[in-house]
């Protein structure tokens, strides 16, 4: 596998709130290499979107970012100036968002917005930019591309708008594409198409893809690597087939029990649920963040628990060696 294009080590995001400091993201590590798909999985509020915005440098000024390392193709993103970040954004790293309905500017045509994305980074005439925009629309599977360029966002369906967003993100041929729940707002048949499209394009263009989702079904189909986040922490990370075949963290197992899998679940059987709610992240956190909801919790879970290697590339943040209580602990 080639050198990672994006390296994140010990990423922390803190938000000052009236009641103290909200530690929204705590100590996240991950890498993505060209041609690789990393899926970041977790429920709402687990810090997945914040993490991706932190990489792009798109956090609001209220959020404090710190990391041991945050580098893109050797460029230290923590030291990069605003101008350097602008030159990277939309050019070498691009992002698409969850809400295609509101992510395009209602006042400009599709062509204007696509051409703008290209012309911000390349010295190219408007006419040539529009030709390239039409090529991109064809690439993402939009027919009658030239006439679409003259349309406004409100004249397109949600699925089409998300394709336009993808075309816009890809127009400068980025090395990294971050897709933040790109299919959540779309209906099921369109979801599959958009996902297929993203994976095809990743292969065709050889870029790195970070796909943020709460849908494990999606992960199973496209991921090379998986990072499972819970309440701002990375609880388990590793190669996708490893995570699916041998999920170690109780939270990951809980998530997998929530989805119906043909063959593993029989008709009429209840799907799993994870009881309880996500704890408040205001103030200092100690111990396992999942222990209040964990079926395997023991008193020692309140201590410090580092992320440790379980197998090659498969890491786990759990006090139990294999993520399960063993007999002596139960009797103890």
């Amino acid at each position: 596998m080639s050198e990672p294009i994006l390296k994140v080590r010990d990423l922390r995001l803190d938000i000052p709130v009236p009641a103290g400091t909200l530690h929204a993201v705590r100590g996240i590590d991950f890498d993505v290499a060209p041609g690789e798909t990393l899926c970041i999985v977790g429920e709402s509020g687990s810090g997945k979107s914040l993490t991706s915005l932190a990489v792009m440098g798109l956090l609001g000024s209220a959020i404090r970012r710190s990391a041991a390392e945050l580098s893109f193709d050797g460029i230290d993103l923590q030291k990069a100036s605003r101008r350097q970040m602008r030159a990277l954004r939309g050019n070498r790293m691009a992002m698409i968002f969850q809400e295609p309905m509101t992510s395009l500017n209602p006042a400009y045509t599709i062509g204007d917005q696509l051409a703008e994305a290209l012309r911000l980074h390349r010295p190219i005439s408007k006419g040539d930019a529009l030709k390239r925009a039409a090529d991109l629309l064809r690439l993402v599977g939009i027919t009658a591309a030239e006439s679409r360029l003259r349309q406004f966002p409100h004249q397109l369906s949600g699925g089409l708008r998300q394709r336009v967003m993808i075309a816009m993100a890809l127009i400068c041929e980025p090395d990294l594409l971050i897709a933040d729940e790109p299919t959540t707002a779309l209906d099921v048949t369109i979801q599959a198409q958009i996902l297929r499209l993203l994976v095809d394009l990743r292969e065709k263009l050889g870029m790195a893809l970070i796909l943020i989702t709460h849908d494990l079904g999606v992960v199973g189909r496209v991921a090379d690597k998986v990072a499972v986040m819970y309440a701002g922490e990375l609880v388990e990370t590793g190669p996708a087939e490893q995570i699916f075949r041998n999920p170690a963290h109780p939270y990951t197992r809980g998530l997998l029990d929530c989805i119906p899998v043909p063959g593993r679940i029989t008709r009429g059987q209840r799907l799993g649920t994870i009881p309880g709610i996500v704890p408040s992240l205001i103030g200092r956190q100690a111990g396992c963040i999942f222990r209040d909801r964990c079926p395997e919790a023991i008193p020692a879970c309140t201590g410090d628990i580092p992320l440790r290697e379980l197998a090659r590339g498969h890491r786990l943040r759990c006090i139990h060696p294999q993520g399960r209580r063993i007999a002596e602990e139960i009797s103890a």
Binding site: R86, R89, F97, N105, L120
Partner: peptide
Amino acid sequence: SSDYIRTARAKGASEGRVMFRHALRN
């Protein structure tokens, strides 16, 4: 605070361009 302003920033547009071309017009 709307999504398309975030999109404009994600494209690499300068702050002035975001303010006047994307925000003020709306």
